[in-house]
Design a protein around this nucleic acid. Structure first.
Lengths: 123, 123
DNA sequence: TTGATACATTCCTATATGGGAATACGATGT
DNA sequence: ACATCGTATTCCCATATAGGAATGTATCAA
């Protein structure tokens, strides 16, 4: 099997940074496609394609306005993401009952502050 | 270009349901791989591969314990997701200052309740 | 040493992507 | 009818999956 479709759910749709940008722009209000094209600096077809994905997962609604198509944000499909990720929120907030982890984090932050560059990543 | 790698960031890593399940299981505490294999009902190699992705985005840490490898949750990389999605939280909570939208939603729900069957989806 | 256990990695394949380019299409203006 | 604007769709392609199967590699036991 291949990776799940981007249209499978909001998780997959929103994994693409450009689509998050689009939602962020639409958060300020309804906008026609060309507005987004200008703001994103992308080619029009790509924007239309991203919008299609967002439509298919219900994250945006469209309304015809003359020859323009006004897109509007619909945040509801984001709720499952919010619900899921919220369970973990305490892990990085001021929960100090596991002091060793906090200290490790601090040390980590310090090292990044000092030697910078090194990525510390796996593999 | 193709889709961003699953290891590109937490957004992409977590778009896969199995990986979310793994994190959910690890939320209860450290676990060796075989535990996860049993709990997920997946083949061991696939679990190892999912764990690799999670390691690469920093969502889990490993610790050697004899011949087992204990995996532990690290929620920190989820913070960007939480931060991003939280901006939209008000959209589905009790914010009634845009009554028209609420009414539209209600009407939509009613129609789905009544005529059911029809998918209402785009395309 | 031999064998088993616990994992990780590699090879394979079908499938879907995101961008670029070209084109199709409906609405509007003349 | 025709040109144009605003969008959507189609075609092409390099790339990266997720799972299945097989194999590699430590570690521990006898």
């Amino acid at each position: 099997m291949a990776r799940a479709a981007t249209t499978a759910d909001a998780f997959n749709a929103v994994a693409e940074p450009r689509r998050r940008q689009i939602l962020d722009l639409l958060a300020a209000g309804e906008r026609p496609v060309n507005d987004l094209v200008a703001l994103l600096g992308l080619a029009q077809p790509q924007v239309s394609k991203h919008l299609r994905v967002l439509r298919q997962v219900g994250l945006v609604d469209v309304r015809d306005e003359g020859r323009q198509r006004m897109y509007r944000l619909n945040g509801y499909p984001l709720k499952p993401i919010c619900d899921w990720v919220k369970k973990y929120e305490q892990l990085w907030s001021e929960r100090l009952d596991r002091l060793d982890e906090v200290l490790a984090d601090l040390k980590d932050a310090e090292m990044k502050d000092t030697e910078d560059g090194a990525d510390g990543d796996d593999e």
